[in-house]
Amino acid sequence: MARIQLNGRKLELKNRHTILTLLKKYKMDSKKIAVELNGKIINRNKYKIVYVQNKDKIEIVHFIGGG
């Protein structure tokens, strides 16, 4: 089990997750987002191989309307 912070929310993950499986869990299209793990941007080629660890802080962002 891993306790993480995702987009400012505290979460508990029961199963082991990579970034990619985490994205799937929340139905996010990996082509339309960017991921920052503990302050570092994760290249999208690495979503499959980077595992989510206990105490990780993850930010997932996308584009919204703006001026």
Binding site: N7, I60, V61, H62, F63, I64, G65, G66, G67
Partner: peptide, 13 residues
Amino acid sequence: VTVAVRRINILDK
């Protein structure tokens, strides 16, 4: 067009 970068709302899939 200009766009902004924001957190995804993880509660609203």
